[in-house]
Write a protein that binds this DNA or RNA. Structure first.
Lengths: 344, 344
DNA sequence: TTTTAGCACTCGAGGTAGTGGAGTGCTAAC
DNA sequence: GTTAGCACTCCACTACCTCGAGTGCTAAAA
C-alpha cells in the first residue's frame, strides 16, 4: 500500500512531530540523515501521503502533521521497540527505593512513577475483588440495630459496609446466621456468593434459623458488594499543562471535567482485550478528548486480570516510550501485587 | 480608624470587584445607589484609602482594586450576613434528594455540592479515627504467616492492614493474644491503645502467652494505625479555570501541582481554631497560592471535631456567600455523620 | 521515468504605529 | 468640604506591514 520511501517519510515526520509539536516541512525531512532525497521529492511524496489521508496540513503554507490514520499506521507498522535510556533506568531505580506494603500505596506509587516518566496523565483502575474468594465474613454490632459487615477475601482485601438488623431478631440468631454463612461461603468467589446462597442455603437457612423472611433482607445487605464501585487513581493532570496542545484553557478544562467523573474513567479503562492497547483520537469515542490517545494495559494477580493501567496524552504522544513503559510497569505491578497477596 | 464614608466606599469597591474582577473607578462607585457623592470626592477618598494600604492601583490610569489588607478589613468589619437566594435554596434542595448511606459517599457528595455552589475548589479532610474507641479487633490469617488485622471503632469505622506473624508462633497462641487484646482494649480510644498495652498489659501478656518477645512486634503491627494518613477529598479544580485569575496556564499549573500533594492539603486544612476560619493571600504562608484565600470550617461527630471542610478561591472571593455556605454545610455534614454513626 | 532546482505564491506570526476610552490628579470654583 | 473641569496617562484594540517558512508547479537534469 505504501512504498518503502513513503513509510520512511511518514516515520520521519511523525518522529519529528512527536518531539517538536510543530508542523514538519519537506526541507526538515530531507535533511534528516538516512533520507537521501531532496526537499522537492519529499514534497511530492508528502502530497501523496496527504491525499491518502496519512498527513494533514493546518494551512497552505505550513508543513504537514500526522492525521489519526497516520498515527494508527505508525503504531501498527512503523513503531520500533523503544530503547531504554540510561536515564530511564536510573529514574526507575530511584523510584523503587521505597518499601511498599499496602496495595493502595503500590497503586499510588505506580501512577506517580508513570506520570513522572511519561509526562502524561496516568490512571489506574483499582483491583476488583469480585473474582476473589471469601476468606472470612463477620458482623460487628455497634449499637441498637446497626452494625458493620466485614468481608475478607483470600487476597487480603477487606470490604466493609453498614447494615441494619431487622426488628425483633435476637443477636444470637444473627450469630447463628453469620456462622452458617461463614461455613458455607468460605472459598466462594465474592461474585457468586448470592447465587450460592439462593441455590444451596435457602432451605437450610429456613430450617436452621427463626425469622427466615426477615433475615433474607439482612443476608442481602451483608453480601452487598457492588455499591463499592471500583476505585480510580489518577496522577499527573498537571503534566498535561506542559503539553503545547493543552496550553489552551478551554481544552484543559474539558479534560479536567472529564477526570472528575469517575464513571467515565472506569469506562475508558475497562479493558477490551489483554495486553497493551492503543486507542487514538476518535477511536476513543469521546468527544471531549478527540485529540488524545489512550494507552492501556491490564495488570494481573496470579495471572488473573483484575485492573487496568492507563496513560492519556495528546495524539502526538511518544507511543514507543509509553507502550514500553506501561508494559513494563503493568508487569512489574502485577508481580508486586502477587507478592503482596502472598505475604512476604 | 476609617471614617464611615471610607468604609462605605471600600465596601462598594470590594463588592463590585468581587463580581467584576475589574479595577473599580471612582465614577462607578459614585453612581452606586446609597452613595451620594461625586466622583471627585470618591477619588479623594480612594487616594486616602490607597495611602492607608486598603486599595491598590494596577497602573496609573486604572481604577482601584482591594489589597489584602482591604479584604481582611472587609471580612472582619464590613461583611454583612449573606442572604440566601431562592436559587441557593433550590439548588441545595436538589442536591439533597439522594440517599446517602456511606461516610465516603457523604463526603464526596458534600465536596461536590460545595464546589458547585461556590464555583471554587473544595477540599475535605476525612474524619480521623484516632479519637474513636475500639469496638472490635480481629486477625484473619490468609496464608503462611500473612494475615489481615482489622480494627472496628464504635463509630463503625473499619481500619485494616497487613501483618506478618513472627516465625514459630502457633495460630492458637495468636488467637489467645487477640482475645486478650480484644478483652482489654475494647472501649479504649484508638490513639491510646498502645499506651494501655504498655501500661496495663505487658505483665499479663508475659504471663499468659509464650514467645512474649516475638509477640510484642506483632502487637505493634496490629495496633499500627498511623500509616493511614487522613484521606483528602477534593472537587472542582475545574471551576477555578472559570475564574479570570486562573485563565493563566502557569498559575493553574502551580495550583494543580499543589493539589496533587496530599500532605500540603492536610497542612492547609489542619484547623487552628474552631468555627469558620478565613485566611487571605499571604496569611496562608504558601507561596504558590499567594493570591488565593482559604475558608475552612471543621465538622464534628457528636460534638467532637474530626475533620475539616475547606474552600479555596482567588482572594477576590465571594466571602459572604462562601462563609455562609461552608458554615451551613459543615453543620449539616456533622449532623449527617452523627446520624450515620448512630445507625438509622 | 524519476529526481531536483528554481520560482512565484500563500499564509501566519510577530512587530509597530495609531486611536479611543476609562480613569486619574490637580485646580479652582461653589 | 464638595464638586466641576481639564489636562494627562496608560492600556486595550485594531490595522497594517514585514518576514520567513513552506508549498505547488514547471522545467531541466539524471
Amino acid at each position: 500500500m505504501l512504498t518503502e520511501r513513503q513509510k520512511q517519510i511518514l516515520l520521519a515526520i511523525i518522529d519529528d512531530y512527536i518531539i517538536s509539536a510543530e508542523p514538519v516541512g519537506s526541507r526538515t525531512v530531507s535533511k534528516k540523515k538516512g533520507v537521501g532525497y531532496s526537499a522537492a521529492t519529499i514534497r511530492n511524496e508528502m502530497a501523496d501521503l496527504e491525499e491518502m489521508g496519512f498527513l494533514e496540513q493546518p494551512h497552505t503554507s505550513a508543513g504537514r502533521i500526522p492525521s489519526q490514520k497516520g498515527y494508527r499506521f505508525y503504531v501498527d507498522h512503523l513503531l520500533t521497540p523503544y530503547m531504554w535510556t540510561k536515564e530511564d533506568l536510573l529514574a526507575l531505580h530511584k523510584h523503587y527505593s521505597m518499601r511498599i506494603d499496602r496495595v493502595e500505596q503500590a497503586i499510588q506509587h505506580t501512577t506517580s512513577i508513570l506520570s513522572k516518566m511519561t509526562n502524561y496523565m496516568t490512571m489506574i483502575l483499582g483491583p476488583t475483588i469480585s473474582e476473589n474468594n471469601l476468606k472470612h465474613l463477620q458482623i460487628v454490632p455497634l449499637f441498637d440495630r446497626s452494625a458493620v459487615s466485614i468481608l475478607v477475601t483470600d487476597t487480603g482485601h477487606v470490604h466493609q459496609h453498614r447494615v441494619t438488623f431487622p426488628e425483633g431478631v435476637s443477636l444470637s440468631t444473627i450469630e447463628k446466621l453469620v456462622n452458617l454463612l461463614n461455613h458455607r461461603l468460605t472459598g466462594v468467589p465474592i461474585s457468586k456468593m448470592k447465587e450460592v446462597v439462593a441455590r444451596e442455603l435457602s432451605d437450610e437457612l429456613m430450617r436452621y434459623v427463626d425469622h427466615y423472611e426477615k433475615l433474607t433482607e439482612l443476608v442481602d445487605q451483608i453480601l452487598q458488594t457492588e455499591q463499592d464501585t471500583q476505585r480510580v487513581y489518577t496522577s499527573g493532570a498537571t503534566r498535561m499543562l506542559e503539553q503545547p496542545e493543552f496550553r489552551d484553557v478551554e481544552k484543559m478544562k474539558s479534560l479536567l471535567d472529564l477526570m472528575e467523573k469517575n464513571e467515565t474513567i472506569i469506562q475508558l479503562l475497562r479493558p477490551e482485550s489483554s495486553g497493551v492497547q492503543v486507542r487514538i483520537g476518535q477511536e476513543i469515542r469521546l468527544e471531549e478528548i478527540n485529540d488524545c490517545s489512550i494507552i492501556t494495559a491490564s495488570y494481573t494477580i496470579h495471572g488473573e486480570p483484575v485492573g487496568t493501567i492507563g496513560v492519556l496524552g495528546p495524539t502526538r504522544m511518544d507511543y514507543g516510550r509509553v507502550i514500553s513503559l506501561i508494559d513494563f510497569l503493568a508487569k512489574d505491578f502485577s508481580k508486586r501485587l502477587s507478592t503482596l497477596y502472598d505475604g512476604e
